[in-house]
Design a protein around this nucleic acid. Structure first.
Lengths: 234, 234
DNA sequence: CTCCGAATTTTGTTGCAACAAAAATAGAAT
DNA sequence: ATTCTATTTTTGTTGCAACAAAATTCGGAG
């Protein structure tokens, strides 16, 4: 049973072979820290700081930064300053629109030919989400939520699509990690996931697609509200 | 009248400010060469060759290569070898599916609020396409075609979306440039563009979206056929 | 207390040499 | 001829120092 493995080398390895250099390692490390919310939005990230923090030289650190900037997981606030991004209302809307199309596509294609093994796996993820949520382990719930989504997307066998979706998740993850936990998942999310599972059981890709889209829309509403309630912050 | 400017610094500069270093220049140069078909698919690209060819040091050349690889405009054929990619049928299908969703979105949003100035501009682009086509200047036709599409997309004011679409165009452009000219545009394309213009005049975003999607689908069919007819090549 | 400008520190970039590893090449054996 | 192996060349990566430019700090003027 082949694991979709969203833990692969971030999408660069799309079936090709590439030696993992320090630069890629640094990229993975930094990405991990970003998505885990190690730095608050607005925090300045410098090449030398990353180099020392991760224990690599300045070249790999620079490579990682450049890559993250290209993916917009980090943004310039000045000619020479990169910071963890903040998502404006407009940007959140834009990312959501892209997610709807792209993840809708991935869900639809991924649903085709899904078997009971997939369903069992997804139910396991959902169980982890429920458990984590019940115990207040929001970070774990978020992680399992990601696994749930990407297990479906991964089945589509569309590496480019998957990589693009991942950058979108990284974009919102990095910007919202400071307030995400409380808002990210709720009974709505659970309900949408159950709907997706139903669609999988029925062998109806459109039903799965619709459920995922609703999930994205629900998340958008919550994020949007969180954003407007967020104090203008000194 | 603000120019949408698809000639901007490749999408990195999404409203932020960033100093253009040699690395970015090298990236632009290489990208240009790729989209112009300077290298045939399968051609090996090395850091030092690029450095000398473009007249930069090895560091900027390496930066450019890394970035192009991250965007999949260049791919690894071995642990240390990057080549101009070939698009498999599966990859062409994947790119097309993504283009349909993303460019459909961009067309729909870009159509909203389009005025007579936009229509005039688009008609001018179409005129250039017709003229170039009539005279056999396929490269120019391709260029004007790109301008036509991106003028609409640019109106949507969605920088992330636009950057993503551009990488998709680069991906197929680099892989197909050797046989693209004869197949890229035909009376179908013209007809689709006219339909898009009609939608713009009616102020009907859905009509524009449908026209663009048909355009993408027509192009896909032609490319697909060209791909299967392509000799297995020694 | 605020604002502005000069001095100082920090920071990204670039070229380069050294190194390890991969790719190309040449040759030998079957 | 073909395949496999050894040798040679090519190639990407990395660390580092120097440099120009930007960010920050600090004072002083209003």
């Amino acid at each position: 049973m082949a694991e979709p493995s969203m833990e692969e080398a971030d999408g660069l390895v799309g079936g090709s072979n590439k030696v993992m250099g320090l630069g890629d390692r640094a990229y993975e490390d930094l990405k991990e820290k970003l998505v885990r919310g190690a730095y608050p939005p607005g925090h300045k990230i410098t090449v030398r700081a990353v180099a020392e923090e991760l224990g690599y030289g300045t070249t790999p650190a620079r490579d990682a930064l450049n890559r993250l900037v290209a993916e917009r997981a980090l943004v310039f606030s000045g000619p020479k300053t990169v910071v963890v991004p903040t998502l404006s209302l407009a940007e959140l809307y834009e990312v959501t629109q892209m997610r709807l199309r792209l993840e809708g596509l991935a869900a639809e294609k991924g649903a085709i030919g899904a078997g009971s093994a997939d369903i069992a796996r997804l139910e396991a993820f959902q169980g982890e989400i429920d458990a984590a949520l019940a115990e207040g382990r929001y970070a774990d719930a978020l992680w399992s939520n990601k696994e749930f989504h990407f297990h479906i997307y991964g089945r589509a066998n569309m590496p480019m699509l998957l990589a693009t979706i991942e950058t979108l998740w990284l974009r919102v993850g990095a910007a919202f990690n400071d307030l995400y936990p409380e808002f990210a998942i709720s009974k709505y999310g659970i309900q949408n996931h159950r709907a997706a599972l139903e669609g999988l059981r029925h062998g109806d890709p459109q039903e799965v697609k619709a459920a995922i889209e609703t999930d994205i829309r629900d998340g958008y509403r919550r994020l949007r509200q969180a954003l407007s309630e967020r104090a203008p912050k000194k």
